[in-house]
Design a protein around this nucleic acid. Structure first.
Length: 787
DNA sequence: TGCACCGATGTTTTT
DNA sequence: CATCGGTGCA
């Protein structure tokens, strides 16, 4: 996305067509009928898409009749901005957004037809999980067998394949499959889950698509309306659409057939979430007479990167015929680095970024570190922090998923949609007001009995036959009164004022402030930030409708992950993110870390060929983010779930044609100022002669080879034992000896009784003054020597 | 009813 | 190691 250092074609309003190469221009100017654009990595896909929309408008197509669907809010926002620069302010009339946000909006408008309130809540994954967990518990099913996450995943895949509860019940194969998996109650749970969501006036992410399909199928007039409205439909990242999305697009495009899809089968990386790569592979079968355009020239990356990436992806069987090429200079070879531990990996990367920035006179924002799993970011953060390198993490748990934020949002949700059961459960006793589990149980039993939403029930508590003592009754009615009050205010004031009132009245802030831990201080700040965020939102919001504004805000929040309050003016930062999140982005310098078997490719994705191919595509995506230089690194040992494990280099490393790669010898990374011993010197493989053992057997099973002994690490002769370096924890264990007095963060002071084991297993028995004798793994124990 | 502590459990990737 | 849910005590 964007103009990379190689994309110095400058868009101008007038002769925008001159900024395109031949195939790009052909794709932009082709007007009527179905078409598919196969866009290789870095081939100017976004440019074509934006110009195409601008071109349609230039041909006199009303932007009102154009629908453009993207996968992320960020992509939508960026594209909208770029269209505006080419086509002018008129562009604001076109519908552009993610599948989820566009159809959420349509569903709101048509909600009554499906029996939902137009103010329906959107359940996020956490809400959905809690509901599933509750259902499993109510039915007293074994939670070892019915794991909430697995159950939710299964339900999600049903929905994405348009298998409704009824379809499930009529499908003996599915029922049989669940029986075989020892989960015969799956159908029941599914039914109950859908039912409860309906009663709560809530839709989960998958429902936004599934219910849209329902809407378009059951109500031909509605379908007709939107077909007529969206005469030109464009879909970005088509390779990542699932069946549900596929059907929506098909239905909407059916009348005018002006459907333009853009994608790259080599970048299909969302199979785990139901994306169906067949959608793109079979487009021409689905729409006969579909025109096909291929964008194969890469403007983004160096020759080495492009060709290396090709050499990887060529190993996949499932792919469309295309060949990405570039005119760009070959550039540097891809650098491969092996380190001993993940901490070394982080250090390597921090040093390398630091040096590159100095030598190349570039900004930290020109660098990105990409990893397979979010958990990997920790070691990297540590290393960057120690080097004082500014970074920004994308993804992970978003701001809006923090507990304190979700709690406040739950109040807002509840007052907009009192049926929202998950919101209710969140806030009924937070901050604590003495309505505990026992009372809640009674309420839910009664609600079930009277077939009413709980909030309705407690709104008219006197009419209900229920055993509660007087004190509890008052507490409940007080709660109802408070929510009612919020609702009245919400109809008169804007979202910010309401939120402010909620925070004040519920005394959430006071509750957080009172325990004064550093943790709660940051929570208070978060709440403050939320209020600021709502204020910003109000100012941008064009809608005059007050009530709508709060609902729209909640919707944005539910569907936004990259909503993150980007600080424009802050200093340039290194970007840290998962590869999935990096799709569509580009950076001059890219570091891909953790290239190890069972991590990347993930151990969960090595069972079938197609899973492995998806991992390979993921690697392809990662590599093609780089414009100028790519680094690949892998560690020989890594902590996973708290244990140190040996890691083998990823098979992907040997899949790259070696003429494009170069191995950095760890020995060349001098240990700076004797800060740490270069442990790789003592590993089994000589550093200058790196060989990759091909795993003999593939699969997630445990390694057959006996665990390698930790390599011998000679006693380090450390003349200076300053804590100045970032490696004091490493120094510690070799310095620790029997009889020393130490101090522990939690246990206080104590004396070392004995030390056993070596390397990762090194343990100390310590007698603490307060808590007695403890055995601690030195890896984790944060001990300070005090004498 | 509330709180503190314990143990189990978990890591793919996201709208 | 972090988070969560459960349990047992005040």
């Amino acid at each position: 996305m964007g103009n990379g250092i190689f994309g110095n074609q400058n868009p101008s309003v007038k002769n925008y067509l001159d900024n395109l190469n031949e195939s790009q221009r052909a794709a932009v100017t082709h007007q009527e009928g179905p078409m598919i654009i196969i866009a290789g990595a870095g081939s100017g896909k976004t440019r074509v898409l934006t110009y195409r929309i601008a071109h349609l408008m230039a041909q006199g197509i009303d932007p009102f009749n154009i629908l453009a669907l993207t996968f992320t809010n960020k992509a939508a926002r960026e594209m909208k901005n770029r269209i505006a620069t080419v086509a002018g302010p008129e562009a604001s009339n076109l519908w552009m957004g993610t599948f989820h946000s566009v159809f959420a909006r349509i569903l709101r408008a048509e909600a009554d037809k499906l029996g939902f309130p137009s103010s329906f809540t959107i359940y996020d994954t956490q809400d959905a999980q809690r509901l599933i967990a509750a259902i499993i518990k109510e039915r007293q099913l074994d939670k070892e067998v019915y794991k909430t996450k697995q159950v939710l995943n299964r339900i999600s895949s049903f929905k994405n394949s348009l298998i409704t509860v009824r379809a499930y019940q009529n499908n003996p194969e599915l029922i049989q499959a669940d029986r075989m998996a020892k989960r015969p109650k799956m159908g029941e749970i599914y039914a109950e889950y859908v039912n409860r969501c309906f009663k709560a006036g809530a839709m989960d992410f998958d429902d936004l698509l599934l219910r849209t399909n329902e809407l378009l199928t059951r109500f031909p007039a509605v379908l007709y309306k939107y077909q007529d409205r969206f005469r030109y439909i464009l879909v970005d990242e088509y390779q990542d659409t699932n069946h549900s999305q596929y059907l929506i697009v098909r239905a909407l495009a059916d009348r005018f057939q002006n459907i333009c899809v853009v994608g790259d089968d080599s970048q299909s990386i969302y199979g785990f979430r139901g994306a169906n790569i067949q959608n793109i592979l079979h487009f021409q079968r689905d729409y006969d007479q579909a025109a096909i355009f291929k964008l194969e020239q890469n403007y983004r990356s160096t020759g080495n990167i492009v060709r290396a990436a090709n050499s990887i992806i060529s190993r996949n069987e499932t792919k469309l015929d295309k060949e990405v090429w570039t005119q760009n200079a070959a550039g540097g070879k891809i650098k491969i680095m092996r380190t001993y531990t993940e901490a070394d990996e982080g250090r390597f990367l921090a040093n390398s970024i630091f040096d590159n920035r100095m030598n190349q006179q570039i900004k930290y924002s020109d660098f990105a570190v990409l990893y397979r799993t979010n958990a990997q970011s920790r070691a990297i953060e540590d290393a960057l922090r120690k080097k004082n390198i500014q970074y920004k993490i994308y993804g992970g748990l978003s701001f809006y998923q923090r507990k304190e934020i979700k709690d406040i949002l739950a109040y807002l949700r509840l007052l907009i949609n009192p049926q929202d059961e998950e919101a209710f459960k969140r806030v009924i006793n937070y901050p604590m007001r003495g309505i505990g589990a026992t009372t809640l149980d009674k309420l839910f039993v009664a609600a079930n009995h009277y077939q009413k939403p709980v909030f309705d029930l407690i709104s008219s508590l006197d009419e209900i036959d229920i055993k509660l003592n007087a004190g509890t009754r008052t507490k409940i009615t007080d709660f109802v009164t408070m929510i009612r009050h919020f609702q009245i205010v919400a109809s008169e004031k804007n979202a910010f004022e309401v939120a402010e009132l909620v925070v004040k009245k519920t005394r959430i802030l006071a509750d957080l402030e009172k325990d004064g831990t550093p943790e709660s201080v940051s929570r208070v700040e978060n709440v403050q930030e939320l209020l600021n965020g709502i204020k910003d939102f109000i100012e941008v919001q064009t809608t005059k409708d007050r009530e709508a504004s709060l609902a729209v805000f909640l919707e944005d929040v539910a569907l936004a992950t990259d909503f993150d309050l980007e600080k424009e003016d802050s200093s340039p930062r290194v970007s840290l993110m998962t590869i999935h999140l990096a799709k569509g982005l580009e950076f001059p310098y890219v570091y891909i870390v953790g290239l190890e078997e069972n991590l990347f490719p993930s151990a969960m994705s090595m069972n079938t060929r197609s899973e492995l191919e998806e991992e390979r595509r993921l690697f392809y995506v990662a590599l093609t983010r780089a414009e100028k230089q790519a680094y690949l690194s892998h560690a020989q040992t890594r902590y996973r779930w708290g244990k140190l494990i040996d890691c083998e280099p990823s098979r992907f490393l040997e899949e790259i044609d070696e003429q494009y790669t170069e191995h950095l010898s760890p020995a060349r990374q001098p240990a700076q100022g004797n800060q740490f011993v270069d442990k790789s010197l003592f590993s089994q493989t000589p550093p200058d002669k790196i060989r990759f053992k091909k795993p003999l057997r593939r699969g997630p099973e445990k390694k057959a080879s006996p665990p390698k002994k930790p390599p011998f690490v000679p006693p380090r002769n450390l003349t200076r034992v300053s804590q100045a370096s970032g490696t004091s924890d490493q120094l510690l264990d070799s310095n620790l000896s029997v009889g020393m007095a130490v101090s522990h963060r939690k246990f206080g002071r104590g004396r070392v009784l004995s030390i056993t084991g070596s390397a990762a297993n090194r343990k100390a028995e310590i007698e603490f003054n307060t808590v007695g004798v403890k055995k601690l793994l030195l890896q984790f124990a944060k001990l300070t020597i005090i004498g």
